[in-house]
């Protein structure tokens, strides 16, 4: 098992190097001068621009820049943001918790809705409940994210006044801790109330994907011999479905958690803007607009690293769960 984990870890290395190369090339080929964008047209001055560019090392040959970049990456140095005049690591660490929190809640939400919907539609295959479950779940993944976000704000913030329209209501973990440390339940309620709308909007497409995976997983498993066996032994249908079938049907759902993470990030980029959520997705897209190379690289690497990490964890978990996977 340990050697499998090691090998799995080693596999991630070339991927991360590849990502660093891709992000480096990508950032450099986009036209647009970061210094000019930062200075603004009204204050631009050609001499200053050339001088600043030289200082930033932007006029050196690309391979030299990349080698330099990689060298600093290995030492854990992601560089300094041109726009914010701060180390990229700090910028990311400031914003990462907000994105993780939003994505985490959305993930839980999409599992909580997607799995039951998938089960219903598998167990009642072809029946009206199947159709309804499919329409709900597929409907959720068919609405453009930013429109859904704005509609939620109009309905639930403006008209009903149930939830705040934007911003983060304080870190969720801290708010939860407050209950135990005597801060009462209000911080938690506040934090959650701010999370409701963005996490629903973010979860909407994932619900459909999870429901779809669960449904086909269930259909797959329900046809297996051991389920037929359990049924023939007269076990109650409820127990067959939930104790035997669902457990196995969920394995494939787990294996795509990494993919979900990627998709959630894509949604976060849009929804963090709509909901003024102080996360890393917005940071990354703004950085592309401003040609803030260090930030683009840092954010992309961070997301890729998260993706690789989750995938590796899933593989290990899968190997642990499923005896058919060989460790060799």
């Amino acid at each position: 098992m340990t050697s499998f984990a090691l090998r799995r870890g080693l596999m991630a290395l070339p991927v991360l190097i590849g990502v660093s190369l891709l992000v480096f090339v990508m950032a450099r080929v986009i036209p647009g001068d970061p210094v000019l964008i930062a200075t603004g047209l009204e204050r631009a001055h050609p001499e200053e621009l050339a001088r600043a560019a030289q200082r930033l090392g932007l006029d050196r040959p690309l391979p030299v820049q990349y080698a330099d970049y990689l060298g600093r990456l290995v030492r854990g140095d992601l560089g300094v943001s041109l726009r914010h005049q701060r180390p990229v690591v700090d910028l990311i660490l400031d914003r990462l918790p907000a994105t993780l929190e939003l994505a985490g809640v959305a993930f839980v939400l999409s599992l909580g809705l997607g799995v039951p919907l998938g089960v219903i539609s598998a167990v009642r295959r072809g029946g009206p409940y199947d159709y309804l479950a499919v329409l709900v779940s597929v409907g959720g993944m068919s609405v453009p994210a930013f429109w859904l976000g704005l509609l939620l704000i109009l309905i639930f913030s403006l008209n009903l006044g149930w939830f705040p329209a934007s911003a983060r209501g304080g870190p969720l973990a801290e708010a939860a801790w407050a209950i135990f440390s005597g801060g009462g339940i209000r911080p938690l309620l506040r934090s959650l109330s701010h999370l409701v709308l963005p996490s629903i909007a973010l979860a909407a497409p994932a619900v459909g994907l999870i429901a779809r995976m669960t449904r086909s997983g269930m259909l797959d498993v329900l046809g297996e011999d051991y389920i037929l066996g359990a049924r023939s032994r007269g076990l109650p249908e409820r127990s067959v479905i939930y104790r035997h079938a669902l457990k196995n049907a969920l394995i494939p759902v787990v294996t795509v958690s990494g993919l979900f993470l990627g998709r959630l990030f894509g949604g976060a980029v849009i929804l963090e803007t709509v909901f003024a959520w102080p996360g890393i997705g917005r940071l990354a897209v703004l950085a592309v607009g401003r040609r803030d190379y260090a930030v683009i690289g840092g954010a992309a690497l961070m997301v890729a690293f998260g993706f690789v990490l989750v995938n590796a964890a899933v593989d290990l978990m899968y190997a642990a769960l499923d005896p058919r996977i060989r460790y060799g």
Binding site: V15, G18, V19, L22, V23, M26, A27, V29, I30, P31, G32, L259, G262, F265, G266, V269, I270, G281, A284, V285, V288, G289, I296, A299, A300, V303, A304, F307, V308, N311
Partner: peptide
Amino acid sequence: VFLSFPAILLAVALVAF
């Protein structure tokens, strides 16, 4: 590499390019 790279960033960068 492409799978773990944030797709939306790649698309944004390509369109900007």
